[in-house]
């Protein structure tokens, strides 16, 4: 317990944790509740804190589990997940499947040119809204990977360990994320 300073948590980590949750859930009231629950859960579990990670990392991991619970509440049925999982690994929704061929783009999936004026606008609030919308559409694990990679700046080795996935699986998923995000932005922003 003496490793932790609950009296300073709200001041030190409140805003950070709120942002962390908002990035994922986009509902201020819900996120505030989750932050509060995180502090209370942390207090109850304080004996488990061994000081191996920082207080901040530890609190964040508790919050993350709460966010994942929220997602479970909303998640689709398992059967649908299995189907998309299949699609996710063979990429047949993007590329033609033909052993003798070079794996060309499906006609309707071919990237189109984005004008320079479009690329220049990728710093506007309108664009960020589209980007966030597209990111939220990602399956949970893929979204978590993106969050780890960009928001927490965790390196791939640690991420793989944490989510118990192989390096090659990690790359397949990041590849997948790029394919899906690009397409989603093209549909919702460029066209």
């Amino acid at each position: 317990m003496n490793l932790l300073q609950p009296a300073k948590w709200v001041e030190l980590y409140g805003d950070y944790l709120l942002k962390f949750a908002l990035f994922r859930l986009n509902d201020v009231a819900l996120c505030e509740d989750l932050v509060q629950e995180t502090f209370l859960a942390a207090l109850k579990a304080s004996e488990n804190f061994k000081g191996e990670s920082s207080e901040k990392t530890w609190l964040t991991s508790i919050l993350k589990n709460k966010i994942i619970d929220e997602y479970r509440k909303k998640s689709r049925s398992k059967i649908v997940d299995d189907e998309t999982q299949q699609e996710e690994t063979d990429f047949t929704d993007f590329f033609e499947k033909n052993d003798n061929d070079f794996g060309h783009w499906q006609t309707e999936q071919k990237p189109i040119a984005w004008e320079k004026s479009i690329l220049d606008k990728m710093v506007t609030q309108e664009y960020y809204q589209v980007l966030k919308k597209c990111m939220r559409k990602l399956p949970e694990l893929q979204f978590n990977l993106i969050q780890e990679k960009f928001f927490i700046e965790n390196d791939p080795k640690n991420i793989c360990k944490k989510y118990n996935i192989s390096q090659s699986n990690y790359w397949v998923m990041i590849h997948r994320v790029h394919m899906v995000l690009r397409k989603c932005i093209e549909i919702n922003w460029v066209k």
């Binding site: 690329l119 990728m122 966030k132 960009f150 790029h178 995000l181 690009r182």
Partner: peptide, 12 residues
């Protein structure tokens, strides 16, 4: 485009 998206996430 993927390069642009990648940096836009950092900017976001």
């Amino acid at each position: 485009q993927v390069n642009a998206i990648h940096s836009s996430i950092r900017n976001l």
